[in-house]
Write a protein that binds this DNA or RNA. Structure first.
Lengths: 213, 213
DNA sequence: GAAGTAATTGACACATGTTATAGAAATATT
DNA sequence: AATATTTCTATAACATGTGTCAATTACTTC
């Protein structure tokens, strides 16, 4: 990395750190570009040079935290694809729980920003990941052969994103959100699964419904 | 209505008409409070006095058009509650189809506004309506007795709102959106329905899946 | 070390949603 | 009819995200 790139990386990191600090200690409303530049010790223009927009800074914060539905993307060579799908929910929940209000406010800001491409990107990513996992579940026989994995994968991802969106708006707590998604997913998976896994999914569904309230 | 209220109503109507005209002929980006006030022939403050915020003007536009998932709310005394649920989708589709780009841009603007309460309100309304219809379907025996109608109703509403949200972001076309919701709803309903209605729902489900693509 | 290049800075500008203030006009109350 | 209240207008202001542009600084290349 050339020294120029190095300097840029340092500035990028300082800006992220400053954004993080402002959100944590002063709240999202106080995160203005002027305040951010001040705390990071750079000029007002620099965040724009390095990130593009305020929304892009927030996206970088989430990326830095390795979110972005990463659990859904984990390569999966062995084990049950359905278990993997459901396990991903638990990972997402744990991740958000680690600092719920922090991630909630960032997530909301991104989802309501006037840069629609920020939304589209995460929608597309989630749909692709979910379609992949569903296809694996079909291949492994957990879901019936005739299942349209593109359609089902899209359905699951949409449901997840919708609930996350409502969590972002403060409509659900993190725990409620994931329980909501889990029962929603199970209801649909039950309809597409093969007889072998049906009993265990049905149990899981009953549990999930009770866990909601 | 006192003459004062009358005057307010007239101004309100003029502002709505102006907003409508701007969105239709100049596009959502041109809908600024200054342009709106100018075209409505009122001062910049008046829309704030009469509506509260720009978002509230947009909400009024949708309300005026009798949207807000009104079809879901129709009182239902007779006929099949499930048919009513599915029929509501068709009505929503027809409504949006009547001027897709117009409603899409308004819907998106509301859903991405920085007034989160606007979002919460429409989420709450949709969930309540849907829970009511599901409860009726349970009462009539179309859905099995043990169905948790609050939970299922919430699930259906969330899925609808999820897809509408993506339609708002331009991710789906109107037709695709509703087809997506219909098949999603049918999959879940199939899992909760009584044996009497299962065959017809299964048929509808197959049709809906083919209609997507 | 000199010349060229890329990034940063600073000061300013603009459009926007929103609020403030003061005064004018219309309406309601007595 | 006189007074009080409500609403609207006009104008200015503020905070914010973002853009412009010239000057400067730091780095790369030769």
């Amino acid at each position: 990395m050339s020294r120029r790139e190095e300097a840029k990386a340092i500035n990028r990191a300082r800006i992220c750190a400053a954004a993080d600090a402002i959100i944590q200690h002063e709240g999202m409303e106080k995160l203005t570009m002027r305040r951010l530049a001040e705390l990071a010790g750079v000029s007002l223009r620099t965040p724009y040079n390095l990130f593009g927009s305020k929304t892009d800074v927030l996206i970088a914060l989430l990326d830095e935290a390795e979110f972005q539905l990463a659990p859904l993307r984990v390569a999966q060579d062995q084990g049950s694809a359905i278990a993997h799908l459901l396990g991903a929910l638990g990972k997402i929940e744990a991740f958000f729980d680690s600092d719920e209000e922090y991630y909630r406010s960032i997530y909301e800001a991104i989802m309501t920003s006037d840069h629609p491409e920020a939304r589209s990107t995460s929608v597309e990513r989630a749909i692709e990941s979910s379609q992949l996992l569903v296809a694996q579940a079909v291949a492994s026989g957990e879901l019936r052969r005739e299942t349209d994995s593109r359609s089902l994968g899209r359905h699951l991802a949409i449901h997840l994103l919708a609930v996350l969106g409502m969590w972002g708006s403060g409509f659900f707590s993190n725990g409620q959100s994931i329980a909501q998604v889990r029962s929603g997913w199970l209801a649909v998976l039950l309809h597409h699964c093969s007889e072998t896994v049906r009993p265990s999914l049905a149990d899981a569904y009953r549990e999930a419904c009770e866990a909601k309230g």
